[in-house]
Design a protein around this nucleic acid. Structure first.
Lengths: 334, 334
DNA sequence: TTGTAGGCGTTATCAA
DNA sequence: TTGATAACGCCTACAA
C-alpha cells in the first residue's frame, strides 16, 4: 500500500509538498502540483487517515447514541444529522444503546479514547451529573429526549404544549372521559405529556381520574394490554390519548378486539407521526415533530461546539404540528 | 490530557511496561502492575486509540452500509451484527446510503482510508466488478441482498423458495387469480420473488398474466396505487402477493378503500415479517427471515476474513419461516 | 521482568 | 515555493 513517501519519491518532491497538494494548504507551483497528482494517480494512493487523525488529533467522526434503530421515529432525525454532518466533512457513527446504561457508557469510551469528535444523545441513560461531566469535557448535544438538569445543549419540541393541544382537540370533539396510555419511564417527554394531559383536563373542568391511566411503556403489546383493561371498564373512556403512535396502534387494536369502532365508539390519538401513523387503518391523529430539522439543528449545534464557538449550553425548542386524521374525527373518514 | 509517558513517569517505570499492563501481554511483576494501575487511576488516563490504531494499523471498526435505517426490516439484522461485533471488540458504524451509488462509494473511502477494518453490505449499489474488487482487497460480506456474480461472501435466505412457498399457500386456499405487487428494481430478492411467483402459478396450471402484476417499488404509496389499479379491474385478483410487508399494507389499504374485505374478498400476503406485520389489522401473512441470525452469521463471516481464516467467498443460506395470519386465512380471524 | 529506541503515516514548523 | 525534520501516542523488537 502506497504511502505519502512513495508518492513523494515518484513525483520527485518532498513529503511536505505532497501533503500540501493533498490539503491544498499553501501555494504549490502548478507544475509541481501536476506531478504530484500524477504520482498519486499512478500509485493509486489513498491517504491513511490513521496517520492524519493522530497528527491532527481529530477523527471527523460523530457518535450518535440512540435506544434502537428499529424505532422508525429516529430515522428522520438521523437523516438531518447525517446531511449536516456530511456537508461539513463528518461521518456519523450510529450506535444502539438498547436503553442500557452500561452500553451507553461503553460507547462513550469512543469519545474519551479520541475516536470520535463529539456525541449526540437521542435519549440519554446517563444521569444529570454524568452528562454534565461529558458536556464539560467534550462537544455534546441532546436531541429529543434530554435531562433538564444536565449542563448540555438540547434541541426538542415543547412536549407539554403539544400534548396539551392534542388532548384539547379530544375535548373539543366533546369527549369528557379521556384515557391515557402512558409510560412509567421518567424521560422528560413522558413526564411532560402526562402532566399536560392532566392539566388540559382540569383546565376544562374534567376531573383527573387515575383509573383512566394505563401504562404501555412504549411497546405495542403492553399498550394493547393496558388499553384492553381501560376499555373493558363499565365507565370506559370515549377517547384515548397514547403518548406514542405505536401505543396508539395498540389501543386501536384493543378497541377493535372489544368490537368498538374507532373513532365512533372510541377516539384514539397518538404522538410522533411515524410513517405508519398514516398507513394504519384508521389513520392516526398525532403530533408531528420536525424530525429532520431537529437532526439538522442538533448537528449544527454540535459543530459550533467543536469549533469552539459556543461558550454555554443552549436549549432550542422547535415547532410541532397537530395532524388530525381518521382516528379521532369522524368526518375525516371517507 | 495524560499520555502513556505521563503514566510511566508517575509510576516510575518505562512506557513499555505501561503498555504491557494495558494490553496485559508479557508478564509484569504484580507490584509493578499495581503501581501502573495506580498511576492510571490517579491521572485518569485513557489510551489514545488514534496512536494505537496507527501503530497496529487497525481500527476495530466495521462499516455497515444499508439503504436506510428507517426500514424496520434492518433493525434485527443490525442487532445481530452488533452483538457478534461487540463480543469480539469491534464497533459498528451504521451508514445510510439512501440507495445512492455515489454515497456508497463515499462511505467506502472509510475502508480504503483505513478507518474501518471491514464492510458489510446490506443492499450493494456497486456492480459485480466493483464489489469483487472491494472483496479482493478488504474483508467484505453481503447480507440479505447481494450480487450473484460478485466475488464476495453473502448470507441470505432462499428468496425463490420462500416466495414459491407463500404463493403456493395462496393457491392451496383456492385462489386462481393471484396478483403480484412487485418492484422494478433488479435486486436479487426482487427478481427471485417474481420468478418464483410465476413458476408457482405455472406449476399449478395457472397461466401467468402480466395484467395482474403491479409495481410498488417497496413504497407504501406506490403499492397502494398499484393495488388500486389491480383491484379496480373487472377480473380483479382474489389474492395478492406483495413482495414486502410495507407493500402488503398498501395493498390492504387499497382493498379497504375499494370496500373489499381482507381476506374474504381478497387475500394479501407480504414478505419480511416486520414488526408491523403483526400489528396491522388484519395481521399479515408473511415470510419471516431469520434477521438476527443473518446479522450474526454475516459478522462471523467478516471476522473470519479479518483473521485471514477464509480463503474463498462463501455463500450461506439460512432458513426462513412462513407465518400464516389473518390477511390470508379466514379462520385465523377471531 | 524491564527498558531503550525505532517506526506506524501524517502534518506543520522552520529554514532555505 | 519547497525541503528537512520534529512531533502526534502508541506498540514491540531487541537488549539488558
Amino acid at each position: 500500500m502506497a504511502t505519502i513517501v512513495d508518492v513523494a519519491r515518484e513525483a520527485e518532491v518532498s513529503v511536505a509538498t505532497v501533503s500540501r497538494v493533498l490539503n491544498n494548504s499553501t501555494s504549490v507551483l502548478p507544475k509541481t502540483r501536476e506531478a504530484v497528482l500524477e504520482a498519486i494517480e499512478k500509485l493509486n494512493y489513498k491517504p491513511n487517515l490513521l496517520g492524519r487523525n493522530l497528527r491532527r488529533s481529530q477523527t471527523k467522526m460523530i457518535l450518535v447514541l440512540l435506544p434502537t434503530v428499529s424505532n422508525p421515529f429516529y430515522s428522520g432525525i438521523v437523516k438531518g444529522i447525517e446531511d449536516i454532518g456530511h456537508k461539513n466533512g463528518y461521518n456519523i457513527m450510529l450506535c444502539n444503546t438498547n436503553s442500557d446504561y452500561q452500553r451507553e457508557k461503553t460507547y462513550l469510551e469512543l469519545l474519551k479514547n479520541k475516536l470520535s469528535d463529539g456525541v449526540i444523545f437521542m435519549a440519554p441513560e446517563l444521569n444529570e451529573e454524568e452528562l454534565s461531566e461529558i458536556g464539560s469535557k467534550y462537544p455534546a448535544v441532546q436531541c429529543c429526549e434530554y435531562k433538564e438538569g444536565a449542563c448540555v445543549s438540547h434541541v426538542s419540541i415543547d412536549n407539554y404544549k403539544a400534548a396539551y393541544e392534542i388532548v384539547s382537540h379530544l375535548i373539543e370533539l366533546g369527549h369528557r372521559r379521556i384515557g391515557l396510555i402512558g409510560s412509567k419511564s421518567n424521560c422528560i417527554s413522558s413526564i411532560q405529556r402526562h402532566e399536560a394531559y392532566k392539566r388540559a383536563l382540569e383546565d376544562n373542568g374534567i376531573q383527573f381520574d387515575t383509573d383512566l391511566v394505563g401504562y404501555g411503556n412504549y411497546s405495542y403489546k403492553r399498550a394493547l394490554k393496558a388499553a384492553k383493561a381501560l376499555l373493558s371498564r363499565d365507565d370506559r373512556p370515549t377517547a384515548i390519548f397514547a403518548i406514542s403512535d405505536i401505543m396508539a396502534i395498540g389501543a386501536i387494536r384493543a378497541a377493535k378486539e372489544a368490537r368498538l369502532r374507532v373513532p365512533h365508539d372510541v377516539a384514539v390519538a397518538g404522538f410522533d407521526n411515524i410513517d405508519f401513523a398514516s398507513m394504519y387503518d384508521p389513520m392516526i391523529t398525532t403530533i408531528a415533530q420536525p424530525r429532520y430539522e431537529m437532526g439538522c439543528v442538533a448537528m449544527e449545534l454540535l459543530l459550533k461546539q467543536i469549533k469552539g464557538e459556543l461558550d454555554e449550553p443552549k436549549s432550542i425548542m422547535l415547532d410541532y404540528n397537530l395532524i388530525i386524521r381518521e382516528s379521532t374525527k369522524v368526518d375525516t373518514l371517507k
